[in-house]
Design a protein around this nucleic acid. Structure first.
Lengths: 178, 178
DNA sequence: GGGATTTATCTTGATATCAAGATACTGCTG
DNA sequence: CAGCAGTATCTTGATATCAAGATAAATCCC
């Protein structure tokens, strides 16, 4: 069993300052010196950053009176391009929720007038969900705002670091989805 | 407004294969060429990886008959070290949930016999949540298993890349928490 | 030391999610 | 062309979460 071989180097590289995850990992290392807790430096940090990111995005969404889950759906439809319509099944795949959740989401978005359901051609089981003009305007406004804030969030990270981050995360995602 | 200056380089670096986020970002770029969508390469990917990671961990937890939220709480208590006890407030801070959620979680863990509540000394408002022996055994077993799986997940990522990933994420987390 | 403020925890009510199963239609196979 | 497995969507029931507020005790400050 390989024993925290990478920990010392990691520690050196980050001498400037600890974050909450460093404290968590150190605590585990102290309590379980028999385990290699190095993976936590990457994977726990991802979970924690994602959590905070959700919270932060929430405040950006609030100013447009939109919930995160609403944006998820509208945004999948928007980036599909004209005529801005997808099947519920396709929406399920893209948003990583279950079919029941998607039915519920589409219901509520339809009530708000942001999407519309129509029968699928050539398949009487099927439905297509399409963005209304109002939905499109909304998602466009939110997206511009969101990107501005994310730009700012990344502004202290050099371009090179952003690329490395993206590449590493892509590898992980490939592992998880492949 | 800076216009997707980093996108071409990113694209080149990843010629080997696209992931789902690449497809999402490309679609946005096509639909909104006026916006700089590069931040999504990092931030959307973090959300998506985190989501998948949750799902993956879920299956590891299931074999020990533990839910993710249970592990979160037990693990905070475990790494606190002897005597394995923390206030509900401290647990709230570490797990990023609200106080109502924590009350509920502690209730359920107490019912399962994994933790125990006792009055805080010197503060009659307060309570301390402490790990039972059973809780400690459980969290130790789950942690060992979890680390083994995460080790494997990271095994295709060179050590150097893991370090860079950790460093970049730490910077982001500092931004989000500071 | 007594009243206002802050801190710590718990309660309540509304909501979003999921797993499992129901329903309805398609399209393959023999 | 009949039956049957597969696909697409929706329904149901249980559950975890959150926001807001209630309650109680500690601490501050004059």
């Amino acid at each position: 069993m390989s024993r925290n071989l990478t920990a010392p180097r990691l520690r050196r590289m980050t001498a400037r300052g600890q974050d909450e995850v460093d404290r968590i990992v150190d605590a585990w290392q102290r309590e379980r010196p028999d385990l290699d807790v190095a993976p936590l430096h990457v994977l726990s940090r991802i979970s924690r950053v994602a959590r905070r990111l959700d919270q932060t995005r929430g405040t950006a969404f609030a100013r447009h009176d939109v919930e995160g889950w609403e944006f998820d759906v509208l945004s999948a439809l928007r980036r599909a391009g004209t005529p801005y319509e997808l099947s519920p099944g396709a929406l399920v795949q893209q948003t990583l929720v279950t079919s029941g959740t998607m039915t519920n989401r589409v219901d509520r978005l339809e009530n708000r007038g942001l999407v519309r359901r129509r029968p699928a051609p050539n398949d009487r089981r099927g439905v297509l969900v399409e963005l209304t003009d109002e939905g499109r305007d909304l998602v466009d406004a939110v997206m511009a705002d969101l990107l501005a804030r994310e730009q700012e969030l990344l502004s202290h990270l050099p371009t090179r670091d952003r690329e490395r981050l993206a590449v590493g995360l892509r590898t992980l995602l490939g592992e998880l989805e492949g």
